[in-house]
């Protein structure tokens, strides 16, 4: 806490309480009360998602195309490894960064490119020179084509944003229908033990439209995003 600046917590709360003694004009409320009935769910209004896993995977794949992300459903871990090796050969990669986890370890041990483990005491200067970041994920969101990332599932905050190519490896069972279901999953996993300090949804590669509203990929984060799904 900065000693020279005084906190206005109490005076702000006093002003808020004073302001709220006057109830808001009724027209500020929603016009259709049935929309906000306790039994209503956000799913009712959000974009539709199919109920079977196959439909959800198909929608995720469709979203990836629209987002200019690469999606591949692999029949085995080895097929995923081969795909990454091919990417490495095509783009002359020299170093792939990753973190320790069951899935990423299994993949990394079979890759033909040098591996940099961005765990614990990694050097951000070295991480910046890696050609790709390979991570796991908390979930894949079918509705939006997003990859949900947390430190528990995907390594540190920088691993998935600093290297120019982000590769995600996930199991079919990690597909989640929509955003409400993803937040429910996060709550279920972490509300008791403590939330991670960081939860992020990566939806396609980094992008910008700041110049003449023309889409450019790779503004600051990864220029490419590859999602590999294994059984």
């Amino acid at each position: 806490m900065s000693a020279t600046t005084t906190d206005s917590r109490e005076s702000i709360f006093a002003r808020i309480r004073e302001a709220l003694t006057n109830p808001a004009t009724p027209h500020h409320r929603a016009v259709h009360p049935e929309n906000v009935a306790p039994e209503s769910t956000l799913k009712q209004w959000l974009p539709a998602v199919g109920s079977t896993l196959d439909e959800q995977i198909a929608l995720f794949a469709e979203n990836c195309v629209a987002l200019k992300a690469e999606f591949k459903a692999c029949s085995s871990l080895d097929e995923a490894v081969a795909h990454i090796n091919q990417l490495a050969a095509d783009n002359q990669w020299t170093k792939i960064a990753t973190h320790h986890s069951e899935l990423t370890d299994a993949v990394a041990s079979k890759l033909s490119t040098a591996i940099y483990h961005a765990d614990e005491t990694y050097d951000k200067l070295v991480l910046e020179t890696c050609n790709a970041g390979l991570t796991g994920c908390e979930a894949l969101v079918s509705q939006t084509g997003s990859v949900c990332i947390t430190p528990h599932a995907s390594g540190g905050r920088s691993l998935s944003i600093l290297p120019p190519h982000h590769i995600v490896i996930a199991r079919r069972s990690q597909i989640v229908a929509d955003l409400p279901a993803t937040y429910a999953l996060i709550k279920e996993r972490y509300s008791a033990s403590g939330y991670p300090s960081f939860i992020s949804f990566s939806t396609g590669p980094s992008r910008t439209g700041d110049i003449e509203r023309i889409l450019v990929l790779g503004a600051h984060g990864p220029k490419r995003l590859t999602v590999l799904l294994i059984p």
């Binding site: 997003s146 920088s158 960081f198």
Partner: peptide, 24 residues
């Protein structure tokens, strides 16, 4: 805001680096 179903990155931050986390 942008005509996108979801923008590129939507991030929730709930603290500085926590014990057991790699960075932050």
């Amino acid at each position: 805001g942008c005509g996108q179903e979801l923008t590129g990155y939507n991030t929730q931050i709930g603290g500085p680096r926590q014990p057991g986390e790699t960075d932050g």
